[in-house]
Amino acid sequence: MTTTAEAPAKKRSLPWFLEFYNSNVGRKWVMAISGIVGLGFVFFHMFGNLHLYEEPARFDEYAEGLRDFGEPIFSRTLILWIARFGLLAAFAVHVHAGFTLWWKNRKAKPVGYERQQFVEATFASRYMLITGVIVLAFIVYHLAHLTWGLEFLNPSFTRGEARENLIEGLESPITAGWYVVANLALGLHILHGAWSLFQSLGVTHPRFNRWRRNFAVGLTAVIVAGNVSFPIAISTGLVGS
């Protein structure tokens, strides 16, 4: 009886990008890139909303400007929708990578210590998942509140009246308070994330490394200061209709 040597099992390889995403280092790289997309969005979202402090008509002009961006070459709202789907994709990937890595890490450290003193870790760096979940919940709420204008969240919502909707939506101190809390969570998330992304992407240079921290701190300060100012200005009546 003859036996034939078994052919070596051919390792079925995934498309290269999925294989890359399956590694933790690759997944962190994807988190960094999608995080940069998110950082760009929150920065320009805050920057655009500064039109709130100009004469009332300017804010609605800005909102309309987002819809007809790229006209007449692109039809109305086309660029806006492309941006929305791009953001949604980056966001979905970021959340998926974040949760799956967290789950893997939990399994890699199943038993903790009776006593552990953290020396270098910060609140922001240790609780990225928690601040991230708060931001996630806030984004869903924020869309329902001021983009979709769901009846039970925002009864006075009128489609197209961006400034009115914003001001009426944030008049209640409770809603304004939730906006402030969520933006502080966003700030903690950015404080670590905007530094951590350089490490994940492998961007390191002795001459620039201290600017990586400074960049994260500066960006956090600008974004949080701008975003927190809106609900405070509106709920205290500094900006009104």
Binding site: N24, V25, L101, N105, K107, K109, T122, S125, Q199, S200
Partner: peptide
């Protein structure tokens, strides 16, 4: 990665 978790750049 077969044995260990992933880096979150905490620096500990």
């Amino acid at each position: 990665e077969e044995y260990f978790g992933s880096c979150t750049n905490i620096g500990e």
